[in-house]
Amino acid sequence: MANTALPASEAARLEPRRGWYRRNEIALTPWLFLVPGIAMFSIYVIIPIFQSFWISLHEWDGLGEMTWVGTANYERLLFDDRKFTVSFWNNVKWLVLYLLAIPMGLFIALFLNQTVRGIRFYKSMFFFPFVISQVVVGLVFSWFYLPREGLLNAILVFWGFEPVNILGDPSLATYGIIAAGLWPQTAYCMILYLTGLNAVDPEQIEAARLDGAKGWKMLWYVVLPQLKPATFIAFVVTIIGALRSFDFIAVMTNGGPFGSTRVLSFYMFEESLSEFGFRMGYGAAIAVVLFFIMLVFIAYFLWSMWRDEKEARR
């Protein structure tokens, strides 16, 4: 028995006849396990990021030779492209308004955090828009908004309001699409908060209650601090969701009316694979700009996770 209690490294030293692999097993195994994953991830994710930078410095139709143009694509983007400006500001709108999903999700989670009969059914039904594909959600909302057949206008007219053609009006269309996007995103935030609320320490709540805290004060000073991990994740997924918004726009308006609902991700797609010929270089340049916007957030997320890792090690 004494022999088996030796640490693995000791055992390896005592048995010099074992093969090279056996002697270095602990050092080698992780790399053998990592190779397939790292290979796939590098080929399809890491390397393409750098390739996109390279392509963005060229003019390229995707088939023929690439022509070096230096920073010309970027100069055109930043100083001479109204479509880019519109897309950029729409992205900002998406970012800001999409964050409403977090308080809305919290509100619904608080509403549903009870133990009445059938509450589990209600929780699943409230969550269920998140499971449906964004394409279908987009279609559902575009029919909901239809000027003649849509339910929204049927309700508006019933209450004596003027019908509105949300997706046909350049000043409203983006907001209509964001509202559609908020629907599943709110459901996601809700489920995060429901899980978080489940883990809130009941003793702290009771203690605070004895001290006379209730309502908003209780929420703000006692409950929300305990929901911090849920809020962090809700923040991460909402920001990423906002910057990735593509499906809704492609399905609901295809960028229109008059290009008023384009965002960078959609504009990039349009330029690269448009019917007027492929402008891959220009598209890649738009993607690089989007990447840098995202990088600000990615850096922040990674930094927070890194900090947690360091704490976990101690």
């Binding site: 390397i47 393409p48 390739q51 991700s265 797609f269 598209g283 993607a287 989007l290 990447f291 990674l302």
Partner: peptide
């Protein structure tokens, strides 16, 4: 480092991968 590379790649906007991945 490898772990964070996986996480970071996962957050990246699809669009920056689009042209090279389509080409590949």
């Amino acid at each position: 480092l490898i772990f964070f590379l996986f996480i970071a790649g996962n957050f990246v906007p699809f669009q920056i991968l689009m042209v090279p991945v389509r080409d590949l």
